[in-house]
Every structure is written in structure tokens, then in C-alpha cells.
Amino acid sequence: MELVIGLVMIASAIAIIGYPLIQKDIHNLKVKPAKNIPLGYEQQKEIVMSSLGEIEFDFNMHKLTVDDYQELKALHKEKAVRLLKDHDKVSGVTERDLVRKLEEEIEADLISLEGSDDNEKG
């Protein structure tokens, strides 16, 4: 009985490792070593933004001096701005669009301000 089980075990062992070998093979496929793949916009943004958050946080926790804070903050803010700008460029938002959009927003703000003024008067 045990002999039979033993034989079955050996047979299945051979089957397990042999099966892939008799399959159709893909030659010369090599798993690419994971080099640093450039990160997507969202991930880059997350890193820069959370860095900024951390600097702000540490400063408020009194762990950073004012000088270090300003220096670090300027550095990372610049990075964040560059990242946002580059992204806007890629996604086709031009400066002119933005300026127009900003102006519209300002106008809308003004209108609503006037409206609220009217309300107060009324």
C-alpha cells in the first residue's frame, strides 16, 4: 500500500515540474529587473505635496527652525509649482486659458460680493 502511495507521489512530483517544460515555450523572455520606473503625475504630486505637508507640520510642532523652514518650504514649493505647471502644459491648459478662467472667477466673486452687499442693504 505504502509502495503504491510512494509511487504516486513520485509520479505527481515529476508531473508538477515536468508539465511546464513540455508546454510551448516563450524563448528569450527575461523578467526585466525593476529599474526605477518614472512615477506618474499623481504619485509625484503626492510625494511633493506630502513633503510640503510634513515641513509645515514639523515647523508647527517646533521641530524646525524658522530659517530651515523657509528654506525647505521654498525649495519644495518651487518643485510643486513646477510639477503643476508641467502637468498643465501636458494636459493642454495654456496660460491664456488660465488667465481667462481666473478673470472669470474674479468677476464671479465680484458679482456675488455685490449681491451680498445688496442683500445687506435690503
Binding site: 508538477i16 515540474i17 515536468g18 524563448h27
Partner: peptide, 12 residues
């Protein structure tokens, strides 16, 4: 570089 089948077999 002897082919993918060896990877599959090794994993098995």
C-alpha cells in the same frame, strides 16, 4: 536566459 518554461517549472 534559457526560456520562460524554466521559470514556470522552477516555481512549480
Amino acid at each position: 536566459n534559457r526560456g520562460l518554461k524554466y521559470l514556470l517549472s522552477a516555481k512549480n
